[in-house]
C-alpha cells in the first residue's frame, strides 16, 4: 500500500478467536490495515463480519476467555499495544484512542451525570483539577453542539435525546484529544435526520481537530459521504480496501459489487426487482481454508474452495482478496495469481 505520512495506527495480521462449545470461531482472520493522520477510514460489513471485534481486539476490550487475540501487531505511538500491560493499555484507551459505541443509552452510565462522566477521563488521564475539568467539559459539550452546556453538565443521560446522547459520547471520546477516534456504528441507532446532524458534526470536528477516525458501519451511504478510504469486511477478513471513490466506482470484490447492487436507489428509475445476494453469511467455526464468500459468490470456481485468497494490489491504492478478476470477468491466470 503506498502511503504518504507514517500511519498513526498500523495493524498487521490480527487474528482473534473465540472459544465456543461448537469449536473455535475465527472472528478476525489476518486483518491488516493502517490509519494515517487526519484521515477517515470507513469499515463496512454485515453483522458477524468481524468489524467490531477487530476494533475491540486492538484495545483489549474483549473478555478473555472466550476471546483470544492469537497473533498480530498493533503499532500505535511507536509501540505494539498488544504487548503492553493492562495498566498501560488503560492509558491508551480514552487518552490516545477514543471510542464511540453504537448505542449511546447503554454506553453511558445512567446513574452518573453527564458532567461526571465527561470529567472522569480528564481527571484520570490528564490529572486536571475538578474546576479545570468542568471548564474543559463545558468546552467539549459546546464543541459537539450541545446548547446551554454548563447547565446540562448536571443532567443525567436519560434527560438527553438519542442524538444529544451520541454527541455526549463523542465529547467523552474527544475529551483527552486522542490521536485516533474509533466510532462503532455511531449513527445506526439514530434517525436519518439526526444521523445527518451527527455526520455534519464529524465533518466539522475533523476540520477543527484533525484526528484520524475509524468509522464502522453497515451503511455504504454513510461511508460514501464521509470516508477517505474504505475497507470492506466479510467473514472476519478484509475483502476489499481502497480510496472511497475508487472502490465505489470500480468495486472489484464480488461481495462489494453485489452489495452496491442490492441497495435500492433514491434517484433514477426504480428497479423492477432488487438484486439479491443469495444465501447466508458464513459460519466461522471452521478455519477458513476457502474463501468465506464462496458459497454466495456468482463467480466462484474450484480454486476458491481450496485456497483462501490473499489481498492483491490492483492499482490506485486499491486491493482485493479474490481469485476472480473483475476487469476480465474471469478467474485469475496462474501467472497473475502468483505475481
Amino acid at each position: 500500500m503506498p502511503d504518504g505520512a507514517t500511519p498513526v495506527l498500523d495493524v498487521k495480521n490480527l487474528k482473534t478467536v473465540f472459544a465456543t462449545r461448537s469449536g473455535e470461531v475465527h472472528a478476525v482472520n489476518s486483518v491488516s490495515f493502517d490509519l494515517r493522520p487526519g484521515e477517515l477510514l470507513g469499515v463496512v460489513g454485515e453483522s458477524g463480519s468481524g468489524k467490531s471485534v477487530t476494533m475491540m481486539s486492538l484495545l483489549g476490550l474483549l473478555p478473555s476467555p472466550p476471546a483470544e487475540v492469537r497473533s498480530g501487531t498493533v503499532m500505535l505511538g511507536g509501540r505494539d499495544i498488544l504487548k503492553i500491560g493492562a495498566e498501560e493499555l488503560r492509558n491508551v484507551r480514552g487518552r490516545e484512542v477514543g471510542f464511540v459505541f453504537q448505542d449511546p443509552m447503554t454506553s453511558l452510565n445512567p446513574v452518573f451525570t453527564v458532567g461526571f462522566q465527561l470529567c472522569e477521563p480528564l481527571r484520570k488521564h490528564l490529572g486536571m483539577s475538578k474546576a479545570q475539568a468542568r471548564n474543559r467539559a463545558v468546552e467539549l459539550l459546546e464543541l459537539v453542539g450541545i446548547p446551554d452546556a454548563r447547565r446540562r453538565l448536571g443532567d443525567y443521560p436519560h434527560q438527553f435525546s438519542g442524538g444529544m446522547r451520541q454527541r455526549v459520547m463523542i465529547a467523552i471520546a474527544l475529551a483527552c484529544d486522542p490521536k485516533v477516534l474509533i466510532a462503532d456504528e455511531p449513527t445506526t441507532a439514530l434517525d436519518v435526520t439526526i444521523q445527518a446532524q451527527i455526520l455534519e458534526l464529524v465533518k466539522e470536528l475533523r476540520q477543527k481537530l484533525g484526528m484520524a477516525i475509524i468509522w464502522i458501519t453497515h451503511d455504504l451511504g454513510v461511508i460514501a459521504g464521509i470516508a477517505d478510504r474504505v475497507m470492506v469486511m466479510y467473514g472476519g477478513q478484509v475483502a476489499e480496501h481502497g480510496p472511497v471513490r475508487e472502490v465505489f466506482a470500480n468495486p472489484a470484490h464480488p461481495y462489494t459489487r453485489a452489495l452496491l447492487q442490492t441497495m435500492p436507489k433514491m434517484h433514477g428509475a426504480r428497479d423492477a426487482k432488487l438484486r439479491v445476494i443469495e444465501g447466508q453469511p458464513p459460519m466461522l467455526t471452521r478455519h477458513p481454508t476457502a474463501c468465506p464468500f464462496m458459497a454466495r459468490c456468482a463467480h466462484a470456481f474450484d480454486r476458491c474452495g481450496r485456497e483462501n485468497p490473499a489481498r492483491r494490489d490492483i492499482g490506485h491504492a486499491h486491493d482485493v482478496a479474490c481469485h476472480w478478476d473483475h476487469t476480465t470477468a474471469a478467474p485469475l491466470t496462474a501467472a497473475e495469481a502468483s505475481a
Binding site: 435526520t193 460514501a224 472511497v244 441497495m263
Partner: peptide, 26 residues
C-alpha cells in the same frame, strides 16, 4: 424535503455534491 435529503447515498461523487438540508434540534 429534509428527510429525503438526509438519506446517505452509496455514491461518493453524489454524496459530496449534495446540498443537504440538516434539520436543527429534535
Amino acid at each position: 424535503e429534509a428527510l429525503l435529503s438526509a438519506v446517505p447515498e452509496p455514491d461518493p461523487s453524489l454524496e459530496r455534491r449534495k446540498d443537504r438540508i440538516v434539520l436543527k434540534g429534535d
